[in-house]
């Protein structure tokens, strides 16, 4: 491992990509995510109906009925179209929540790891206190305070996930800080800011990327949960969690209204978990020999 390229080296990412390509589970995850991404981007073209259009005459048609491949819901809206638009929404929610989280977490983690000392102590204390709250509870309470809405749900998920990114990044920044290449840069008189974000961050980011990939899946899951409780997306938004919530009373009569959105969530989250696990095997230094 003496010649192990440092992460900022383009060779490192090329090498990692090669390893990832050989990991079948991770590739399956990537494929699932790519499918969802394509469905999300081309939703208006691919969805057979307007997801909000109610056709009362066609209420609760089962899957495979004419014109509705996956049937319709209790208000006669096309399930397939709602699922496709729901996927678009979930993907956006996942990405925005994790972005919020990453901006907060990376800032705190890099400052704590780079400067150390009392600043590190204060930041880590706050992080520890946040981690004393169970994740789901923290998310729910933040939305409860901010008021139920999709935006607030994303903010809440972003805040609740932040501690883990801050922690992971801090640890890898601390490890990189003492490396020769950083010392060399420092000797050249490079500013702290540039050292932190240009020199160290690209090299310290790998474990955070693993966490973020898993984090997107968890964000999708949490936002569905929040919407299910009425704390996230509001009707008639085609959000998967909300779709499950509003069809609760039909579990006796129309199984597909409840079942299909759940399977969609499961698949999307599975995609990110598969990819995240694969990335962890490759990128996490604790697992590297």
């Amino acid at each position: 491992m003496d010649t192990k390229p440092i992460p900022a080296d383009p060779g490192f990412w090329a090498d990692s990509w090669h390893q990832l390509k050989r990991n079948r589970a991770a590739m399956a995850g990537l494929l699932i995510i790519a499918c969802f991404a394509l469905l999300a981007i081309f939703a208006p073209l691919l969805a057979p109906h307007n997801p909000l259009e109610q056709v009362i005459a066609a209420r609760m048609s089962p899957p495979l009925s004419s014109g509705h491949l996956l049937g319709t819901d209790d208000l006669g809206r096309d399930m397939l179209s709602r699922l496709i638009y729901g996927g678009r929404l979930s993907l956006i929610i996942g990405i925005i929540s994790v972005s919020i989280s990453l901006i907060l977490g990376i800032s705190l983690g890099i400052v704590a790891g780079y400067f150390g000392g009392w600043l590190d102590k204060v930041i880590m204390r706050v992080i520890d206190i946040m981690l004393a709250f169970p994740y789901i509870l923290l998310t729910i309470v933040i939305v409860a305070i901010l008021g139920p809405s999709l935006m607030n749900a994303m903010v809440a998920i972003g805040i609740s996930q932040m501690p883990r990114y801050a922690r992971v990044l801090r640890a890898s920044v601390m490890a990189e800080r003492e490396q020769d290449y950083v010392m060399a840069e420092r000797a050249l008189g490079t500013s702290n800011f540039e050292l932190m974000f240009r020199t160290i961050l690209p090299n310290a980011l790998a474990p955070t990327i693993v966490q973020a990939t898993l984090g997107v899946g968890e964000a999708i899951l949490s936002s569905a949960g929040l919407s299910f409780l009425g704390l996230g997306a509001q009707p008639p938004t085609p959000e998967w969690g909300l779709m499950i919530a509003s069809s609760k009373q039909f579990i006796t009569s129309a199984w597909w209204i409840v079942t299909l959105p759940g399977i969609a969530i499961l698949l999307a989250v599975l995609g990110f978990n598969l990819l995240g696990d694969g990335l962890r095997d490759i990128l996490d230094p604790r697992l590297r020999d």
Partner: peptide
Amino acid sequence: LFGVSMPVFWLALVLIMIFSV
């Protein structure tokens, strides 16, 4: 892997659908 990727509230409803209803 499916277990950690599954929405719990959905699983709960599916369980009710099968075993109760």
